Simulated assay, not measured.
Amino acid sequence: MGLNFEFVTSTRIIFENGSFNKVPGLIKQQGSKVFIVTGKNTNLASQLSEWLTAIDIQSEIFKIYSEPTTSDIERGTELARKTNCNVIIGIGGGSAIDSAKAIAALAPNKGELTDYLEVIGKGRKLEEKPLPCIAIPTTAGTGAEVTKNSVIKSTEHNVKVSLRSDLMYPKLAVVDPELTLTMPPHLTAATGIDALTHLLETFVSNLSNPFIDVLCREGMKRISTSLEPAFNNGNNLEARENMAMASMLGGMALASVKLGAVHGFAGPMGGMYPIPHGTVCACLLPAVMEVNIEALKESKQKNKLLRFDELARILTGNNSAVAGDGAIWVKQLVSKLQIPSLSDYQITAESFPELVEKAKNSSSMKGNPVELGDDQLREILIKSL
């Protein structure tokens, strides 16, 4: 038995406090007209645009108000083409960065967005290389700055799907932890649990490998000591640094290894209800852990159970912890972070059959450490309400 794995990530990563100030000089190396994709808060995008004007680089700002829809990406792509931009920048949370990556990919390629989407589209491969994309995260959760896909909501199909290609990794990721200092507690909590879910699901994935395991162990350790402090004191720069690092490591992990049942449900649930992705992860993660552990015990898959034992020791800091202790720790953390429940978003048992059916067909479910039946998937939803 040998060690076999592949690993790819963004071409260049700059991780440094204050590194946002270096961006204008870095852009000058990439192109002459910039398309800036940002969220509702445009302060940083506007600041960057002013800096670019001072060095004779034109820019266009495009706002994404929530998690991107197919129509958002189509509008952004049309505008990027019309303005002849040759560099795309995503500055903000995962929604802004995912949108930037999608627009960078589609702008030089012919056809419609649906030609390239998974699940609801044709899943065609990109024929032309994407425009250079620079990712600048202002949250610590998605790890989108180092991944090769964009998650996009189809309001027509009530589901979230991916535009995915090995060509879509950002050309440059600028991770400046100081940009996350202004995140409010509720956003710190939701994005932080998203990062934890990425690391945890890839660590126990049936497709995990020793290299990704190294990233996951490091990331989970940092979150175990830093998420709650960052939630309680947003100005705790050390905690913010650890969370930014963990988020990036989680992105690297999920780009190489499939996730699991949490993300299997997250796509359809986020498509059917106006619930933030991080909140979905927080609501589902404890129950998914519990059901997976029980299913592994029933099927006597000892080696996979040992993975849950190890992550329990990492999260709790207790060398005697076992699998169930990890699930308890996560449940208690979610409670401390005051994350709303699924029922707060009007999710009821009536939607369970549809959610279960859609989750079973999701790409992420293929990475779950054990195959779950309909009854077990329903049990996850019941426990999570």
Rank of each mutant, 00 (worst) to 15 (best):
residue 301 Q to E: 06
residue 350 E to Q: 15
residue 335 S to C: 04
residue 338 Q to V: 15
residue 339 I to S: 00
residue 291 V to S: 01
residue 285 L to K: 08
residue 309 D to S: 00
residue 343 S to T: 10
residue 342 L to S: 10
residue 340 P to E: 03
residue 304 K to R: 10
residue 308 F to L: 06
residue 296 L to W: 05
residue 345 Y to S: 00
residue 289 M to K: 04
residue 339 I to M: 00
residue 290 E to R: 15
residue 289 M to E: 04
residue 297 K to H: 12
residue 326 G to Y: 04
residue 335 S to P: 00
residue 340 P to D: 03
residue 286 P to G: 10
residue 302 K to D: 15
residue 320 S to K: 07
residue 342 L to Q: 13
residue 352 F to D: 06
residue 304 K to G: 09
residue 347 I to T: 11
residue 304 K to C: 09
residue 299 S to Q: 14
residue 353 P to F: 04
residue 295 A to M: 06
residue 333 L to C: 01
residue 336 K to G: 09
residue 290 E to Y: 08
residue 356 V to P: 02
residue 325 D to S: 07
residue 314 I to K: 01
residue 305 L to F: 03
residue 349 A to N: 10
residue 291 V to P: 02
residue 336 K to F: 10
residue 307 R to C: 08
residue 320 S to A: 09
residue 355 L to K: 07
residue 336 K to E: 13
residue 301 Q to N: 06
residue 328 I to C: 08
residue 285 L to M: 11
residue 356 V to F: 03
residue 319 N to M: 13
residue 296 L to I: 06
residue 299 S to Y: 14
residue 350 E to D: 15
residue 298 E to T: 11
residue 338 Q to S: 11
residue 295 A to P: 05
residue 307 R to Q: 09
residue 356 V to L: 04
residue 293 I to R: 01
residue 338 Q to R: 10
residue 352 F to Y: 10
residue 293 I to P: 02
residue 285 L to I: 13
residue 323 A to G: 05
residue 345 Y to V: 00
residue 327 A to D: 07
residue 296 L to S: 06
residue 346 Q to L: 14
residue 347 I to F: 11
